[in-house]
């Protein structure tokens, strides 16, 4: 594979090195991991989603259960499953709430940190970023106990009732996710040359005006990216409802689509429908994130 002649020549020309097989060797570990832990599992999920078990006779004894090709039957079942749709609706409401609050707060905090005369910036920035270091399970446990009327300093509200449980769960996600998104946006703001703002100030623009007319437009690409990542994470919500479930009976074992996949795969033991459902979840999250990117692209990146 390796040609020493081209290698030596390229070594002198061009800013990027060209060294025959070397780049492939350097990338071999990543590609091996990619093949084993990404490509293979994805392929296997697609394969499983197209299979089903055929039971012959009473389904007892060896050979009574065989795996056969099922076509798209599992997908048809997943798409026609009312329980799954109910889960989607719950997650849609929850996700809209989380995205709006989390990204809204992250944006407000980032802009506030970037104002000229803010005090306590370092302390508050560290505090707001702190939940990033708290595992979702621990965050849910802390808030879960705070929601219990017997322990809560927040008063005798039924935070875990059917009416409020979505809000209570969204609060946990907002609490955990705001700081990271704030830091992403704030980092982007810090990279903007200060002279931009000075010029606007000399022109008489207020801090608010600068934030609305200069800073937010600058942030649009990073807001877009954080939104896409948050959508992907929210569609797969699993940890918070699973951890909160032991504290209340208002969260079913199929509250979110991913919880249903888990139940199908490990409680009911129907791997094939779990596989089909997880492909559907992946499809929906891809459609949502690409759809969003497309919409935003027309607005934000059209000019640049």
């Amino acid at each position: 594979m390796r040609s020493t002649k081209t290698g030596a020549r390229a070594g002198r020309a061009g800013h990027a090195g060209r060294a025959g097989a070397v780049p492939y060797l350097f990338l071999a570990p990543a590609m091996a991991l990619f093949t084993l832990f990404m490509a293979l599992p994805i392929g296997y999920t697609i394969y499983l989603s197209l299979r089903r078990t055929r039971v012959s006779g009473l389904g007892l004894g060896k050979g009574a259960r065989t795996e056969v090709f099922a076509g798209l039957a599992n997908y048809a079942a997943a798409v026609g499953d009312g329980e799954l749709w109910a889960g989607w609706l719950r997650v849609l409401g929850y996700g809209a709430l989380v995205l709006a609050l989390m990204l809204g707060l992250a944006l407000v905090f980032a802009l506030m940190l970037d104002t000229a005369h803010v005090r306590l910036a370092r302390l508050t920035r560290i505090s707001i970023f702190l939940p990033y270091a708290v595992p979702g399970v621990a965050a849910t446990l802390m808030w879960g106990f705070l929601y219990l009327p017997s322990l809560s300093p927040l008063g005798e509200h039924s935070f875990l009732s059917a009416d409020l449980v979505t809000f209570s769960m969204a609060n946990v996600a907002v609490w955990g996710g705001t700081g990271f998104n704030m830091l992403v946006l704030y980092t982007n703001l810090r990279a903007v040359p200060r002279e931009y703002y000075e010029a606007a100030r000399i022109d008489g623009a207020s801090e608010l005006g600068i934030a609305l007319r200069i800073k937010i437009p600058i942030l649009v690409p990073s807001i877009t990216l954080t939104t896409v990542f948050s959508v992907i994470a929210t569609v797969q919500v699993f940890t918070e409802p699973t951890t909160l479930r032991p504290l209340t009976n208002t969260i079913s074992s199929t509250w979110s689509p991913l919880m249903k996949v888990y139940r199908d795969a490990f409680v009911t033991g129907d791997l094939y429908s779990a596989a089909a459902t997880s492909i559907v979840i992946a499809g929906i999250s891809l459609v949502l994130s690409f759809g969003f990117l497309r919409v935003v692209k027309n607005h934000a990146f059209g000019e640049s």
């Binding site: 905090f109 803010v118 505090s127 707001i128 939940p131 802390m142 300093p153 609490w175």
Partner: peptide, 18 residues
């Protein structure tokens, strides 16, 4: 801005301190 950030910090520190 300082007030908003302090409120944010109180919100994030509240469950941890509890």
């Amino acid at each position: 801005p300082t007030g908003v950030l302090v409120l944010g910090a109180i919100y994030t520190l509240f469950p941890v301190s509890w």
